[in-house]
């Protein structure tokens, strides 16, 4: 495996495949978490919207997102956009649900304090709701690191053009399991680094 690693590193294919996958995963992760949090904020903002969307959220959450893969590929074409969407879509719904629950569980007395100071809804969100939900948002980030890898690798299985997911499928088809293991090792290393970065962010954001 080490031999293969040096060889693939030498001809530059490993670097390009890893680069592609890493880029897709990071983007999918950021888009998924960001959209999920924004959606949660909208639900908090408008109780009417949250009532309307609640059943859809439950169904979408129960649904295996990777099953949407073929539809996404038809919609976005077999390339970057589809794979990134897979990485994002797999974490959006669960992020929305978890973060929205955290928003709603903020002690109403903090809001009471702000209300007596005449705070607007935006101010209440910025001063109380968002900061007190940071711990939950961080733990969702940790879960999403894993999820977006799942989404992206499955996306690459389906598109099968480039990336570590492609290497795994290719290695499997030509029975080159050293290549499969190599790809897995690289994924493990990158996933760990991403996780560590999230922990770094956690230490910066949460002081107590």
């Amino acid at each position: 495996m080490w031999h293969l690693f040096i060889q693939k590193l030498g001809d530059g294919t490993l670097l390009s495949h890893s680069g592609v996958t890493l880029f897709e995963t990071v983007l999918g992760f950021i888009i998924g978490t960001l959209l999920g949090t924004i959606l949660a904020s909208l639900l908090w903002w408008s109780p009417r919207l949250s009532k309307t969307l609640d059943p859809y959220l439950v169904i979408l959450n129960a649904m295996p997102k990777v099953a949407l893969g073929p539809i996404i590929i038809v919609a976005f074409g077999p390339g970057f956009p589809s794979i990134i969407s897979m990485g994002a879509i797999i974490s959006i719904i669960i992020t929305t649900i978890v973060v929205y629950t955290a928003f709603r569980e903020v002690d109403p007395n903090y809001l009471k304090v702000l209300q007596t100071f005449g705070a607007t809804k935006t101010q209440a969100f910025r001063e109380a709701i968002l900061p007190s939900s940071f711990p939950t948002i961080i733990s969702t980030l940790k879960v999403n690191v894993g999820l977006s890898w799942v989404g992206v690798i499955v996306g690459e299985f389906l598109v099968s053009a480039k990336g570590l997911g492609y290497l795994i499928i290719y290695g499997f088809q030509v029975f080159n399991f050293t290549l499969v293991m190599l790809a897995l090792m690289i994924i493990a290393v990158f996933a760990t680094i991403m996780y560590q970065l999230v922990e770094l962010l956690e230490r910066k954001l949460i002081k107590d």
Binding site: D107, N109, Y110, K112, V113, Q115, T116, F117, G118, E127, A128, P131, S132, F134, I206, K207, D208
Partner: peptide, 18 residues
Amino acid sequence: NSDLSIGYMLQQDYLFPW
């Protein structure tokens, strides 16, 4: 919410921990 004519103190301090 028109002007800050009212100050309200609760059973607990509810200082924002962050």
